[in-house]
């Protein structure tokens, strides 16, 4: 059993067993494209990522739900 935790741009990423992903405690559903071995999520519908961790970091960086950008 593996467990990866990191804080990225203010968001806490938890990945268990390379399958279960939460950001700030919220479970994130994702799709693994077995043909291309890429990961994607409904949060970022136009891109695929090389790993679940890359996807999680992109969600924190690029979605208004998790990004910390304000005026």
């Amino acid at each position: 059993m593996t467990h990866h935790t990191e804080v990225f741009e203010g968001g806490t990423i938890d990945i268990e067993d390379d399958t279960s992903l939460t950001i700030n405690g919220k479970e994130i559903s994702y799709v693994h494209d077995a043909v291309k071995n890429k990961w994607s999520s409904r949060y970022l519908p136009y891109t695929q990522y090389d790993s679940l961790l890359d996807l999680a970091r992109a969600i924190i960086r690029d979605t208004v739900e998790f990004s910390g950008v304000k005026e």
């Binding site: 409904r42 949060y43 970022l44 519908p45 136009y46 891109t47 690029d62 979605t63 208004v64």
Partner: peptide, 27 residues
């Protein structure tokens, strides 16, 4: 759409970046 070939639509979203990346892209 951009999942195969030269990538047209997805490329436009990614090129703009920022608010054009998530499902809220019509912002």
């Amino acid at each position: 759409e951009g999942w195969i070939g030269p990538n047209l639509h997805n490329r436009g979203h990614v090129w703009v970046g920022g608010s054009m990346l998530p499902m809220t892209s019509p912002n």
